[in-house]
């Protein structure tokens, strides 16, 4: 049996329409042999958490470029807690200033990957930490 397949949800919470980064990440993860559920633009935190539960993903990856990351990630993390679905790796990407990293880590975000991160680094991070 090959190693267990890793399933990842890639989502764009909030209102910004910049999904190229999310798509590039999705592509990279697929090439690394993962199954990627892509939910498209403008997801609410509720959409994201419900999709993560139904799809029973190992990883949630969210991309935000609008600046609303602190607010939206907080909602997602609270909902995950409320739904008792916390055994999932949560990673974030997009335009996230250094000064917010500490706050997001405290919320429970496991990894933050800003522009310029090599995809292999994200693949390695997921393969090491998921499951």
């Amino acid at each position: 049996m090959a190693k267990e397949k890793i399933k990842v949800l890639i989502a764009k919470p909030g209102l910004d329409g910049h999904d190229r980064g999310a798509k590039v990440i999705a592509r990279g993860l697929i090439e690394a042999g993962m199954e990627v559920v892509y939910t498209g633009l403008r997801n609410t935190p509720e959409d994201i958490v419900r999709a993560a539960i139904q799809e029973d993903v190992d990883v949630i990856g969210m991309s935000i470029l609008s600046g609303a990351h602190n607010h939206l990630f907080k909602s997602v993390m609270e909902l995950l807690k409320k739904e008792n679905f916390e055994d999932v790796l949560v990673i974030a990407g997009g335009i996230i200033p250094e000064e917010d990293h500490e706050y997001l880590t405290e919320l429970g975000i496991d990894g933050i990957f800003t522009p310029g991160t090599p995809i292999q680094k994200i693949v390695d991070f997921i393969e090491e930490r998921a499951k």
Binding site: A2, K5, A26, R27, L29, I30, E31, A32, G33, M34, E35, V36, V37, Y38, T39, G40, E46, D47, R50, A51, E55
Partner: peptide, 18 residues
């Protein structure tokens, strides 16, 4: 080739997803 897959059908099911 990779064993990976893009599962993208949820995008168009937003009327019923919630």
């Amino acid at each position: 080739f990779s064993g990976g897959a893009l599962l993208g059908d949820r995008i168009r099911m937003d009327n019923v997803a919630a």
